[in-house]
Design a protein around this nucleic acid. Structure first.
Lengths: 333, 333
DNA sequence: TTGTAAGCGTTATCAG
DNA sequence: CTGATAACGCTTACAA
């Protein structure tokens, strides 16, 4: 593979000149410019990114550590990150954490050593303390997405999950439901706790006491949602609506309902969370609380790029508000 | 950030020695070893990946160019790639082509310049000729996934789409259907043409003449599937079953059917293609032809890693066979 | 406007 | 087993 030296020789100029036409900004005589370009073309020369990075101490890439590459849930976050990265001529090095604190740590180390110019973290397993420590000790800007951590608040892009839980529950309340169950998420994840909290707040605001027998854990997965719904049904405590902590669990819950001969929404109304593609394909289409993953990814990327001077400084939303997407799984009571 | 020089000074050894303990393989006296390790720890030293890559001419990463990061359809390919990469201590630099030949070209250039050790391509827009040319001119091993290109056959990992189309259609035929429609995919993509071809072959094998009025184009997207189904319905040519070129279109088709008051599978049977998550969530759950994206990604990664001596040489499947996944959208006639 | 030369942080060769 | 030292390919003062 041709190097800058080959080009400089062929074009009869110094390496510095080649470098100048490559990077622009510095005046170069048209004649030499042309000679260099011709040589580059002729040799099929491509600058070596390592050498360049070593010299400039910049990589032209940002690192993203995500819990799972291309999950239905978080896929759009990556897409959002990539779109603004690409817009700024930056690329993406990704690594996944697989919901294991150890893998997350390893991946984080890798990315850091790789000297990406900035880091975006979307992780599940590591604790707030871990993350704060990473951020504190890191030489490069890191932003956390999908999570709010007090200690590094200005570096977090996240959804107001509490408001989301409240929104979902209030919607049901407003439709006349009083016995509203909740299928909760993976409780070690803050989102799950916050959504539950929102559910409780909404009930309280309507003077309805919290009833533990109306909540079952779905663990954010489909199977879990199915089991949780069966458990709810088996308890013989009646309810006319369920707020499910995410769409995946809602899909499972819907199945359990169908198997039990209950109609949605005639017998039981359902509200999900996330507004992933699933919600759209379910039948009946799921009313859900939308989490703007794509925009959150974009915001995170923008924050990261602005921190390294690649993107312009501007006000970017860090705390996103949930929005209710009404479809067909809720009936008035 | 500490460099190897800092470490060597603190540990009172040469840089070479530090490098040796870092990379192993070469004997180092226990005393020095300990001193070096202590210094590394004390300084929080991390080798600079750029410098290392520049010196070794290896990056420790493989590049993946995919048509879309984390689409429901291709997401699993990336996941498959990443899993075997990770298994071998390699990481992933991804870039997306966005179904534009120009973007694909740019992304390809980027990855090549980035000197990833190998390249995996999953692209839509570029032609077979483009790809063959890239492969031919590239200094690093590239493997193409999700596509068969004669000229570089041994570097392709793909599904036998023709067999898939045949399989789907035959299934319907075996269930007694005779008037079988087809909602085709994006015809500029070989997969779409091959699936249609398979459909025709299956019909022919049963002595059923191909009837053009029974095929409509769904373009591989949901809207398209919906429109295609409406068009089919409007034609007043009756049919009892439809083979749809992918699950997304099938979702749209299902919707159109429902809107038209047709029941699935009682009135019309449906078979999809891909077995993406969608198929599973649809109601009724969609009978479909499974394309093993994850395994295909793994195979591609293995091929790439074997080519650079990172993974062991072994027989890896390159041509994958489609499998019919029976669910609830097909009834006997 | 251009060239020379000194880094950037590693690895690898070669003596010792 | 260990230490000098020359690459690796590019950028960037500094001079001219």
């Amino acid at each position: 593979m041709a190097t800058i030296k080959d080009v400089s020789q062929l074009a009869q100029v110094s390496q510095a000149t080649v470098s100048r036409v490559l990077n622009g900004g510095v005046p170069v005589s048209p004649a030499k410019q042309a000679a260099v370009l011709a040589a580059i073309d002729r040799l099929g020369y491509r600058p070596n990114a390592f050498a360049r990075s070593l010299a400039t101490n910049r990589s032209g890439a940002i690192g993203a550590l995500v819990s799972e590459l291309s999950s239905a849930v978080y896929g759009d976050i990556i897409r959002g990150i990539e779109s603004v990265a690409e817009e700024h001529g930056m690329h993406l090095v990704v690594s996944s954490g697989h919901a294991s604190a150890e893998t997350e740590r390893r991946s984080y180390d890798f990315l850091e050593q790789r000297r990406t110019d900035a880091l975006i973290l979307q992780v599940d397993a590591s604790t707030d303390e871990d993350l704060s420590a990473w951020v504190a000790s890191s030489e490069l800007p890191v932003v956390v997405v999908g999570r709010f951590i007090e200690a590094i608040a200005e570096r977090c892009v996240y959804l107001d999950n509490g408001a989301g839980g409240e929104l979902a529950t209030r919607h049901l309340l407003e439709r006349g439901h009083r016995r509203i169950a909740h299928i909760s998420g993976l409780m070690r994840i803050p989102d799950a706790r916050d959504r539950l909290e929102g559910y409780r707040r909404a009930l309280a605001a309507h003077g309805i006491p919290f009833d533990e027998s109306l909540v079952a854990n779905g663990g954010f997965v489909e199977d879990g949602g199915e089991r949780a719904m069966r458990s709810l049904l088996a308890r013989n405590t009646d309810f006319s609506a369920v707020f499910v902590a995410n769409d995946q669990s809602a899909a499972g819950a819907l199945k359990a309902l169908r198997d039990a001969g209950k109609r949605v929404p005639e017998d039981v109304s359902l509200v999900g969370f996330d507004d992933t593609i699933v919600a759209h394909y379910l039948y009946p289409a799921l009313t859900t609380v939308r989490q703007p993953f794509d925009e959150m990814g974009q915001a995170a990327a923008w924050l990261a790029l602005a921190a390294i001077g690649v993107a312009e400084q501007k006000e970017v939303t860090r705390r996103f508000e949930p929005v209710l997407i009404e479809r067909d799984s809720v009936a008035a009571r």
